[in-house]
Simulated assay, not measured.
Amino acid sequence: MDTEILNIFDENRKQIGVASREEVHQKGHWHETFHCWFVSRKNDQDYIYFQYRSKDKKDYPGLLDITAAGHLMSHESVMDGMREVEEELGIQVDFADLVPLGIIEYIAEKENFIDKELAHVFLYHSDHTLDEFRPQLEEVTGIYRIALADFYELWFEGREHIEAEGFQVENDERITSAITVGKEDFVPHEDYYYRRVLHSIREMEREHAD
């Protein structure tokens, strides 16, 4: 696999050079990513979609995460981030149908890993059924949707468990299921990030319903 080269930035979001993905996470350089959240509205209920990360992933294996996301290479534009949607989910989406939330600074740290992202975050109102998703199994082995109100209660109001409905692919077989999840089952994004995303989803779905 070719070394992935990313643009790196200072604290003022000014580009200061390029670095390999490995170096970016070792030294904690700011770099650009693309985040796309699928949302839907059904029976007056808003839903948010999560990918289930492959258990073979190096980082955060077997956890629920942003519907589709990835790094932007040094030669790519933000629009090029759309490849993540098609590659990870097997869904074709028009960039013009995305709702931009702007750039959200996002930091996550663990041992020997510092992730400082300038995340270009988008929402997409999806009318796709779960059957239409064709995840890239090396990266994503399932898709789940969760009622927005339930997820908010889990993350911010002390609720311990909520239900997620969707599917996983095991041994080339798609298995539909409802699972019970807690905070420990999600990639640990910071609270301010989720607050901004969830508030924007509520606004978007309200406008979509009008």
Rank of each mutant, 00 (worst) to 15 (best):
E4N: 06
I8L: 07
I8T: 10
F9Y: 15
E11A: 06
N12T: 09
N12V: 08
Q15Y: 06
V18Y: 08
A19K: 07
S20C: 12
S20V: 12
S20K: 04
V24P: 01
H25C: 08
Q26D: 09
H29F: 15
H31R: 08
C36D: 02
W37Y: 15
W37Q: 14
F38W: 09
V39P: 04
S40R: 01
N43R: 13
N43V: 07
D44Y: 01
D44P: 01
Q45L: 14
D46P: 08
D46Q: 10
I48K: 03
Y49Q: 04
F50Q: 01
S54R: 09
K55I: 11
D56R: 12
K57Y: 15
D59Q: 06
L63M: 15
L64A: 10
D65E: 13
D65Y: 11
I66D: 02
I66G: 02
T67F: 03
A69H: 06
L72H: 04
M73Y: 10
H75I: 07
H75V: 05
S77R: 05
S77I: 05
S77H: 11
S77L: 12
G81H: 07
G81P: 00
M82Y: 05
R83L: 10
E84P: 00
V85T: 09
E87T: 14
E87V: 13
E88C: 12
E88P: 12
L89P: 03
G90C: 11
F95R: 00
L98W: 00
P100G: 14
L101F: 11
G102R: 00
I103Y: 03
I103H: 03
Y106N: 15
E109P: 00
K110L: 09
E111Q: 14
I114T: 04
D115A: 09
K116R: 11
K116S: 03
L118A: 07
H120R: 03
L123A: 00
L123S: 02
Y124Q: 09
Y124C: 00
Y124S: 04
S126F: 00
D127N: 15
D127M: 14
H128P: 04
T129S: 15
L130A: 06
Q136A: 07
G142I: 07
Y144C: 03
Y144E: 02
R145E: 10
A147H: 04
L148R: 04
D150K: 14
F151C: 08
E153H: 12
L154K: 02
E157I: 07
R159N: 05
H161R: 04
E165R: 08
E165I: 12
F167A: 08
E170I: 13
N171F: 11
E173T: 10
R174Q: 05
R174S: 02
T176K: 11
S177R: 13
S177H: 14
A178P: 02
I179S: 01
I179E: 09
G182W: 07
F186M: 04
D191E: 14
D191P: 02
Y192N: 05
Y193P: 04
R195Y: 01
R196L: 08
H199Q: 11
R202S: 14
H208E: 06
H208R: 13
A209H: 11
D210P: 00
